[in-house]
Design a protein around this nucleic acid. Structure first.
Length: 289
DNA sequence: ACGATTATTGCGTTCTT
DNA sequence: AAGAAAACAATAATCGT
């Protein structure tokens, strides 16, 4: 994807470009986002041939996959009045042709909402693309009728997070979504039952890295917390429990082991559960341990 | 077969040490 | 600050129509 290779200052590994970031393939250090000049914005059409395309890359997050054509407004002075009026008509026709059906309009609206959500939640671009295509299939299966568009936009984002094992609670998505939590849930349930998404139950350890960094504990505490999660799972104690709360509880116990002073209330706020939820799984951990 | 009612279980509140 | 217990809400199961 990128021709210019540099050496990582931390570990000496190669810096490679992935999506919009430059990442070290040795230690995973993100060097810089976007700013570096990567030469012409080409992409190869297929890996074998040498043919290159210019232009914006195809993206699933625009309802026409980014292939839209615009009729410009910059008219030179030599353009006659009649010609200018013709352009106005052309633009209107072009616009109408581009988003003709209600489904297209809905999709356009949902896509912009998805784009907004993904960016405010600072999720990777792959989530945006997959959410949009998920929305399109949902639309194809007539899942939308009677349900809110905003709810579906948020639900696809949440669903893709679940599929890609990106730890986000439904509440976190609902926080920034322009939909009520109930709308998100009905939409997500519809997606799940009708399209049976490949989403197993969330592994609590998926939350550990994020929570660990938020309360600023060393990595071996995070690792110990992971062990506790595993132990609980083995003894079948996380049946239907909120995985976010379980992760926070394990982190709490692991932190105490290292003599780091954290309160149950702190980790409870972190996981967005009550202190009591933490407390109960804490006592479970002590049984297992 | 479907809908309503009941039962189980996790969750949050409040009280207590 | 942490634990204990009674009340709550949601989901699963059972029963009746």
């Amino acid at each position: 994807m990128n021709a210019s290779i540099t050496i990582c200052s931390e570990c000496g590994g190669d810096i490679v470009a992935s999506d919009s970031e430059l990442v070290c393939d040795g230690c995973g250090l993100v060097v810089r986002e976007t700013e570096i000049d990567r030469g012409p914005q080409w992409r190869s059409v297929d890996e074998e041939s040498d043919r290159r395309h210019t232009g914006a890359p195809l993206t699933e997050s625009r309802h026409d996959k980014g292939l839209s054509t615009e009729i410009g407004y910059e008219n030179g002075s030599e353009v006659s009045d009649e010609r200018q009026r013709q352009f106005v008509r052309l633009r209107r026709h072009h616009h109408n042709a581009r988003i003709s059906t209600k489904a297209d309009r809905n999709r356009l609206y949902a896509y912009t909402e998805i784009r907004r959500l993904v960016s405010t939640l600072s999720l990777p671009v792959s989530v945006r693309e997959q959410s949009c295509s998920l929305f399109a299939t949902a639309q194809k299966n007539d899942l939308l009728c009677g349900r809110s568009l905003e709810g579906f936009a948020a639900a696809t984002v949440y669903a893709v997070c679940r599929i890609q094992s990106i730890a986000r609670t439904m509440d976190e998505i609902a926080e920034d979504a322009r939909a009520r939590r109930a709308e998100l849930k009905t939409a997500y349930d519809a997606l799940n039952t009708e399209l049976d998404l490949p989403t197993g139950p969330i592994d609590p350890s998926e939350y550990l890295p994020r929570y660990a960094s938020e309360i600023d504990v060393p990595t071996d505490v995070e690792r110990r917390a992971g062990e506790y999660v595993e132990r609980l799972a083995e003894s079948g104690r996380i049946g239907g429990k909120n995985p976010s709360g379980v992760a926070a509880a394990c982190l709490y116990v692991a932190a105490l082991d290292d003599g780091i002073s954290v309160t149950q209330q702190q980790v409870a706020d972190l996981a967005d559960v009550s202190r009591m939820t933490i407390s109960s799984t804490v006592s479970d951990i002590k049984v297992v341990r």
